[in-house]
Lab assay of single mutants.
Amino acid sequence: TQTTHELTIPNNLIGCIIGRQGANINEIRQMSGAQIKIANPVEGSSGRQVTITGSAASISLAQYLINARLSSE
């Protein structure tokens, strides 16, 4: 079954999640098997909405990979 998880990434950290020309986010997508959508910046908001869709296992793996990127910054 597909589930969806949403999280907010601070604007100053979204770059390390996306990577150069989307390299990091594509790697996270491939490794986790989850669909990951990053919302466009919202004016006045300090973060970007990230939506992860997939199986429970792929979502938790995607979250783990995202958190690993954030903590390495």
Rank of each mutant, 00 (worst) to 15 (best):
K37E: 12
S55T: 12
E6M: 14
I9V: 14
N24A: 12
Q2F: 14
I28G: 01
N12S: 11
K37T: 13
A56F: 13
M31P: 00
I17C: 00
L61W: 06
I52Y: 00
I59L: 05
T53E: 10
I36E: 00
M31F: 09
R29N: 13
R29I: 09
I59R: 05
R69M: 04
I59C: 14
N24T: 12
I25Q: 03
N11L: 03
G54M: 00
H5R: 14
I38H: 00
S32N: 00
I25S: 02
R69A: 10
A57Y: 07
I17F: 07
I28N: 01
E27F: 03
V50G: 01
I17V: 09
I17S: 02
I17Q: 01
V50A: 02
N26H: 07
I9Q: 01
A56M: 14
A57H: 13
R29S: 10
E73F: 15
L70N: 04
N67V: 03
A34P: 04
I52N: 01
Q49F: 03
I38K: 02
L61C: 13
T8C: 14
R48K: 04
I25A: 03
H5G: 09
L65T: 04
S55Q: 05
N26M: 09
Q35D: 12
E27W: 08
I59Q: 04
V50P: 00
V50H: 02
N26K: 14
I28E: 00
T1H: 08
Y64N: 15
Q63P: 00
R48D: 02
G19K: 07
L7I: 11
G22I: 00
P41T: 09
A39V: 04
S60R: 12
T3C: 12
E43I: 12
I9P: 01
G54Y: 00
I36R: 01
G33E: 03
R20A: 13
H5W: 14
S55P: 09
A56N: 10
T51Q: 09
I14Y: 00
V42N: 06
C16S: 11
N40L: 07
N67D: 14
T8P: 04
Q63G: 06
S32E: 01
A34E: 00
I9T: 01
T51S: 11
T53A: 08
S60W: 04
S45W: 04
E43W: 07
T1Y: 10
E43A: 06
V42Y: 08
R48P: 02
Q30I: 15
I59D: 03
G54R: 01
Q49C: 12
A68V: 07
